[in-house]
Design a protein around this nucleic acid. Structure first.
Lengths: 190, 190
DNA sequence: GGATGTGAAGTCGTTCACAGCT
DNA sequence: AGCTGTGAACGACTTCACATCC
């Protein structure tokens, strides 16, 4: 909306875009403060700024992908990350030579695939704060342990395996088959 | 557990595997019926069967991937789908020649990439019930419309765009950046 | 004895409706 | 006049604790 030059937006407009309730939009924002103008709405520019502050998006997040198979490779060149200051600055695999020359496009240079053993060293060096696990499930917990060891506090886990981490660390799972199971259930019960 | 030959399982064991509460496991199951034996637990084999019935997984689900870029290609060879009777039986793109020879391994033969225009025809022919959208966001709603036209009732949407479909159809979104936003928020507020 | 099945209590998030500002 | 901010009602899910049954 900012790019389109729209100055104001109402909670109703935001709600319709997200397919939720206008009251929910206002209530959710109100949890963090007062960002709108009564009788008018929200200033697009200010709201964008405020939401970025709330979500912790006022900085660049530096990420590593571990496990450069099909999925891992595709994430290395995933365009949408770059639009929002998510940078993939390292890639790891057990078998580094198998994939080379992938490009993190904003940086304008390839992200070389390194051996897993170097996670800790490289994570410190490149100030990595999030790890994306795209290994086979059997390796997921091992990789998570290495990330914890390297003090990478955020993990996005695509491997269909339960991962446990110490307090202060966060894991978000993305299990494709679980989402399909959900779809299958909904389709079976219409 | 069945593969490992384990006969019985308690709600507490299931709970610890899923990192949730034992009561929740029992309560959730009880919503659909009585599957356990008091004082004993659940028979692994029977419970597996019952859960598959509940979720609608007692059949093979036939899927199509639309948009054969990096992500779409990687899903074509995603091993985990096959383990659970999810079959990718068709692939579509605007520019079919750009990717060929991908293999849906259970079928043991490549899934040829076809032109998007053939979705309706091929969906009927191959009895496709789920569509996976991995196109750029600008095309997502168009593709969804085609899927609806072809009566493909379930959609898994990876394109960062809001998709609307008629009643009787279901869309599940997987927005990578939204999940990262979630991680960013949690990491910023520990 | 021991683990399930389930009311009841508790917690969380959503929705409503209107007072309060601009 | 219009839209936000918010207390209060509502609804849904989670957790608890125990009666129930093998």
């Amino acid at each position: 909306m900012e790019e389109r030059g729209e100055k104001m937006v109402s909670s109703a407009q935001l709600a319709s875009r997200c397919a939720i309730n206008a009251g929910t939009v206002r209530k959710d924002l109100s949890y963090f403060g007062k960002f709108g103008v009564r009788g008018v709405g929200y200033y697009v520019k200010d709201l964008l700024y405020d939401i970025k502050q709330i979500l912790g998006l006022s900085k660049e997040w530096r990420m590593a992908v571990i496990g450069i198979g099909n999925l891992g490779s595709s994430l290395l060149s995933y365009k949408d990350f770059l639009k929002q200051d998510y940078q993939i600055v390292a890639a790891f695999d057990i078998d580094p030579p198998k994939v080379i020359g992938r490009v993190s496009e904003k940086l304008g240079r390839p992200v070389e695939v390194l051996h897993i053993d170097r996670i800790k060293e490289v994570a410190k060096e490149r100030k990595i704060e999030m790890g994306i696990i795209t290994t086979p499930p059997s390796e997921a917990q091992n990789v998570a342990n290495m990330l914890v060891e390297a003090e990478v506090r955020g993990i996005l886990n695509f491997a269909p395996a339960q991962i446990t981490v110490p307090k202060g660390y966060v894991v978000k799972d993305v299990f494709f088959t679980t989402i399909l199971d959900n779809l299958a259930y909904l389709l079976s019960n219409i």
